[in-house]
Amino acid sequence: MAEPRLTESLIQSLGAELTPVRRLPPPWLRTAGWLLAVAVFAAVLLWHYGADHMVRRWIAEPDIALAGAGAVITAACAAWVAFSLGVPGRSARWAWLPLPGLLLWVGASGLGCLRDWVLPGTQVAGVHQSADCLVFIIGFSVPLSALLVWLLRRACPLRPVLTALMIGLASAAASAALLEICHAFAVAATDLLTHAAAVAIVVLANAAMGGRLLQSALK
């Protein structure tokens, strides 16, 4: 029987090659590290734009504050799921975790569509301003996604595409939350569609490219 001998000899060879390794930090710690980077972006935006405008909008239109909170929850949950999926043996069912935050974010943003009707005279976004939102969300998602992929470089995601999808969701949600700091107008239907398109672009681009980037551990 050559094969069992081959397995035994492989075990001995791997034993001979053994070196101590640095364990992967737990998913919550890596999530905290990534959220810290998001907080740095937020601090820079707040320093530049100030918080007064944002707080006034929140008081006048509480659903915007709710949508922002939903986006932050979605970003934190999706980032944690991405890091968890990088550890073999963790259940893929955790991928549902960002759903409540996502529902809050989308639901509260959807309320903004009624704003014209509820509060006539509120300033809503024109086409050019909506395009700015698209550029903002995609622009901030690129470094945030790249940071997540980098933080996952030593991980072993057995479902690379699902992990990349979570990376896309986390960075798009975080970018949408950051946008709230400098969003100059109420969320109307056109603007909401632009946000949704930006999030979809970021998520799909990550699923398409990130899936490949994350497979190196399995080759």
């Binding site: 090659e17 550890v87 073999p88």
Partner: peptide, 29 residues
């Protein structure tokens, strides 16, 4: 499959968290 899995275990052994099940980690790989 046994040999491929052993090589993978060797390459990603840093991803195992001793607070969690070794068998579940191995079975997934």
């Amino acid at each position: 499959v046994v040999q491929e899995t052993l090589l993978t275990v060797h390459r990603v052994r840093h991803t195992y968290d001793p607070a969690r099940s070794y068998d579940a980690w191995l079975a997934a790989l």
